[in-house]
Design a protein around this nucleic acid. Sequence first.
DNA 1: AGGTTCATGTAACCCGTTACATGATTTC
DNA 2: GAAATCATGTAACGGGTTACATGAACCT
Lengths: 187, 187
Amino acid sequence: MNDNSILAYAVLGLLQQQPRSGYDLRKIFANTPMRTFTDSPGAIYPALQRLEKRGLVRSHVQETSGLRRRRLFRPTVAGTVVLKNWQRRLITRDDVVNHVDELMLRFSFMDETVGARRAAQFLNALAAELASYIPTLRQFLKAQAQHMPLSGRLALESGIRSYETLLRWSRNSIKIYKKRKKGETRS
Amino acid sequence: MNDNSILAYAVLGLLQQQPRSGYDLRKIFANTPMRTFTDSPGAIYPALQRLEKRGLVRSHVQETSGLRRRRLFRPTVAGTVVLKNWQRRLITRDDVVNHVDELMLRFSFMDETVGARRAAQFLNALAAELASYIPTLRQFLKAQAQHMPLSGRLALESGIRSYETLLRWSRNSIKIYKKRKKGETRS
DNA sequence: AGGTTCATGTAACCCGTTACATGATTTC
DNA sequence: GAAATCATGTAACGGGTTACATGAACCT
């Protein structure tokens, strides 16, 4: 079977927090910083149907009195497993080059699913991959700068800075997890 | 007719620099920081066919002696117009939220197509849109932080920092364009 | 002669986009 | 009772992904 789409994983992560309807998900994708995901019904409802067909979520119509009919979805045990396995995948160069958004999505639900220890491990792996990737970009820029127009050079510089910011963020976040761990063992 | 895909615009921009074959493009997408684009033949060759069907590029087989046959593509006048119009589009909130990559691609060929003045205008518009968008993210984080798990908070913080870095980059780049302009008028 | 690289393609599949459609419930 | 919102769907379309396929030229 195929891998789930990134939208499907976003849905699975949100359902992990609490049961929600398709419309609930659409509202989240429309009104929060998760608006990078589509809130189109033509994407959400088919995605939910696929998840259910694959046995990763279960749904039943809510039949409380006076309310509009809502189909509530919640993850199955298999769905939770699939979500966790996705989050625990090794971080590859390809992830860093082409799928940073997916990496951040994997991370954003980690506390609630695989726990703080795993989250910190994830950050360490991410920092390592970034620390190895960034120099290759800097090297390319240095070698090619003279042959590139100003806008091209600047565009590349922008990409590099973005990765550097992400590296600083991940190192800083690692510290925060360490601090919190200390606080917990003491209390 | 439909808009061209972002891959199609990347191709069009590269052909604007010099005539290239599908294989040339694949090598660029495989071996340079433009590797965010696919180098799959199943994407490149159909994209070139569509561009030709739409009259935006023209191709002819290179018939030099002793070489492997190569189909060289170059933009038509219409293709150049379409590329420039795409680059000159107004920057929207939606661009900043969902299509930053496309914005950077638009910018990266600007010197060679619409010129330095337009590039500087683009940066000003980008900085303005970012300066208006970032506070809404900060506000959301402040309001929701207490209801969010640590990893969720951090993921959002990462997104905000990325936008802040982009804003700093654009302001810095504006300065560089101003400096270069001064130098040119003086010389 | 055989392997590698060059070079160009095709076809099935998946899924997000866009647009349309329907009806119930709340609100004024 | 009209408009807005809630809520869930469907269908055509486009284009990237994956995998397969073919053959010429170059290298050893």
